[in-house]
Structures are given as C-alpha cells and as structure tokens.
Design a protein around this nucleic acid. Sequence first.
RNA 1: CGGGGUGUAGCGUAGUCCGGUCAUCGCGCAUGGUUUGGGACCAUGAGGUCGCAGGUUCGAAUCCUGCCACCCCGACCA
Length: 489
Amino acid sequence: MSKELPKRSENYSQWYQDLVIKADLAENSAVRGCMVIKPYGYAIWEKMQAILDKMFKDTGHVNAYFPLFIPKSFFSKEASHVEGFAKECAIVTHYRLKNDADGNIVVDEDAKLEEELIIRPTSETIIWNTYRGWIQSYRDLPLLINQWANVVRWEMRTRLFLRTAEFLWQEGHTAHATSEEAIIETRKMLDVYATFAENILAIPVIKGVKTANERFAGALDTYCIEALMQDGKALQAGTSHFLGQNFAKAFDVKFTGKDGKQDFVWATSWGVSTRLMGALVMAHSDDEGLVLPPMLAPIQVVIVPIYKTEAEKQAISSVAEKIMADLKSKNISVKFDDRDTHKPGWKFAEYELKGIPVRIAIGPRDIENGTVEVARRDTKEKSVIQITDLHLKIEHLLDQIQDNIYRKAINFREENTHKADTYEEFKTKLDAGGFIYAHWDGTTETELKIKEETKATIRCIPLNNKAEEGKCIYSGTPSTQRVIFARAY
RNA sequence: CGGGGUGUAGCGUAGUCCGGUCAUCGCGCAUGGUUUGGGACCAUGAGGUCGCAGGUUCGAAUCCUGCCACCCCGACCA
C-alpha cells in the first residue's frame, strides 16, 4: 500500500481522511456513516478515557449505564429536545425477521413493536425517567453520574471521527437541589474539559457560552470549548449544559427540601466524544503523518535497530533491553521493533506516520561509541546521545515535546485570531480562516443572516470576555462585547 | 434530501467517448537471492463476479434502463 499522503495544504479534507486511515486509527465501515476504530486508534481513545475517567472521579462522579433503547414516548416528553433530535434518529420498529416465499430474509410485519424504540442520540430522557425513582429528598442530591456509551445520530453527511452515525462518548448527567449548584457543576465540568484539552491533548481551547440559536436542545445554557484546526476552521470539542428544570419537569422529578417544600430538581449534562480524536489529528499532524502528544501516545518511544549481521543484532538487542528497562522504570511506554521483515527506513516512516513522539535508532556505530540516535517527531530533530544518561534525557524530552506541541498550536491560534469592525472586513478575514472577534447585536435574526451569507457561526461568547462598546457588524446596533465567529466543522 | 463526481485484484489506477487478443500498470502479497544509518534491488509467481440487476448485440468493463455504495459541495449536526 502506498503510504503517501496528500499535502495538507492542497486538500485538507482528503489529507485528514487519508491520514486517519493510513495511520491505522480508523476506517469507514460497511455500515453507512459508521466507522471501524482500529486497535491503534482505540488505544489512543482508551488513554483519553482513562484520563478523563479519573478526572470525573476526582470531581466526585461515579459511572453507571443506561439502556441503548429509548421508548418514543420518553423521547418526546421534552418539547425542544425532541425537536432538536427528531431529524436524526434511528428507530427500531420490529423485533423479528422471517423467510418470505422466495427464501429471502424479510422483516416480519407481524412482529411490529407496539411502541417504537429510539436508539439513543443522547440519554437525557431515559436517565431522567430513571432518576424520578432515585430522587425523593434533598438527601439524595446531588446525584453525579457519568456514562461511557455509544450513541447514534443519523447525520446526513459523515466524516471519520468528526461526525459518524455512531460514536463513542461519555455523558455526565447530574441532579442538584439548587440552580446555583447546577450552574457551578456545569462550569466545573467545562473546566475539566478545558484542562484535559490543553494539558493532555495539547490543544488550546476557548471556553465560552453558546448563543440561544446554538444551544443544546432542552438546555437553558450550553457552555463549550472551541478549538481551531489547522485549516482555519473551528471545532466544538466539548459541551456542558445547564438544563435548568426542563427535564425534571418533563419527567416529574421532584425532591423535598429541608424546608419540607417540594421542588423540581436542577440538572446538568456534559459530554465529549470520539470527535476529540479528530481534533487531535487535525490540530497537530503534518504532511508526514500524525503528531501525538506524549501524554496520549500509546507508544511514547520506539527503538529501531540497524544491523547487518546476527552478531550486531545481538549486541544491539542487549543494549535495547537495558534502555527499555530504564525507560519502563520511568513509566515511559517503549517498543523495541526488532522485526527483520522491514528495513529501518521503512520503520522510520511508519512510526512517523503513526506519530510516535520519540524514536531511538541503534546501529553498530552506536554500539562502538556507547551512543544512540534520538529523533523527535514534532520537530524532526535528531541528536546523538550517550546511553548513560539516556533515560533522564528521554523523560525530559517527552515533556518538552508535549509542551512544544501545545505552544505550536497556541501560536497558530493567535496568528489566526482577528478582530473585525465592519461587515466587509469580517467577510475578508473570514475567507482567510481562523477566529474572528466581532460585535454582534445579540439577536438570533442577525446571527442567522450572517450564517446564511457567510457560513460563519458564532462559536461562543467567551467566558473571559472584556466589556467593550461597539456596534454590531451586521445591523450597527450598539453592543457591549465581542463574540467569536468562525466557519466550523 | 438537492448539486457534482467516482465505482476495474488488498490499495491506487489505464482502458469507457469510438463494443471485438483488454482485462493495463504501480504498490502491496508469496518464493529465492543480493541487501539493511531514511520507505532496497533483481528474478519468478499468486491474486479479478470490471459495484449490482436487467436489456441491446454474434460479442459488453465499454451502449441503454433501474438500483446500490462511496467521495466532494450544500442543508443538518458533537
């Protein structure tokens, strides 16, 4: 198979798709819009899961699991929620197949379900229907539950990791006695996501709140983290919703307070998905392939031996074993690729494509000198290092790489973040890509007009926004702050 | 769901306009040999319902009809 990738600058879409496939992360499945996540891609996802899961637990959450199927009646209890998801649902209508007269397998029309089942596009309804039985008193609150699951949204157009018909995610669903507490929870989980994105994925994000138009179906407020991809388009990387009492009212979830009065419960929900894998790929990769931040790389260091004779191979192996033991004692994951079925050059290219942060090459020359060649994936720099202090240097190098990848991403974002004060300026800058801070009059009408005319959406109103007097770029109406516009995935 | 495009070996493709030794080439795969500090080379070999179903014809990858899948651009969305 040819490993050559299209150039990122020439066809970003194709580059992304080929990179995901060739780097062994995922591929399109035979099922429309679904993907097969391959072992290497799944290993990265598992790492994300492990780190997030710990962060959730450290903030007091526990895991549980709820059904895949949602009775249609549950689904339709919250009006704006059903409206938001109605157009993208997969629905189970029958429970049996049979052979027809010609011997073909067909749906047995006699096995029609009395009530259709919706395959969850998100679990608010089934979970809140369950919570009704779990919550009676303020003593049952807060209820802080997370679920790792798959969901299905029958999207018109799909793309590996970014928008697949089925995707993996986590969804947190919490219940609180007061509005204030629920809002604190919503913001707290947004912070968890932002920390994860920046410290682990090395992707800088902007925390913000969505406009009414972009809000989650059924939420009072939707908070988000927005990231900028290398083609200048924005990607919503995670969301945290303040649901108010909407779902509690729809599912009649009340609790008795300390004062003996009954009230509806306050809710939040928050989630991140395998879309983060897409963000990771698009934020850091180059024309040679993936660039994985060390914190996520399933293999952080790969050792490639270079030898001609069996004796050389033996000598290199014993040195490699020693290095591996040293690195493993530092909790660094390392692989020694001593396959003799592939040549060194082939392996170099392969591990670059897969984004392994550090490569160590050991040849006869090194054995003589007591050195190894160390190459870092992010900058492609190579250096010759004495074996004696290698493990300390590698540990430091991994930190440096993590840091450098983040710094590079943040520089890119700064270079592609602009202000626009007129609609003309806005349109010109928009074509160059990136985030654009501009004044907006706060109306959905204007937001939709701008979207219709330019394809730009309001990504968010940044939480750390400074007040600033100005005029809406579209309507000229006075405004008190800038919001972030961008074309988005 | 609208507009455009593409379906030929595991992958990428030539051939389709103009029907007839046309199933082409590269990568990959297998075997043998020489190689090994950046995707090696030579030789030999295996591998194909030409997306599917009809039709036209002496003859269809090629023409006609229908269907399906995928990709790109929209609409929709994490």
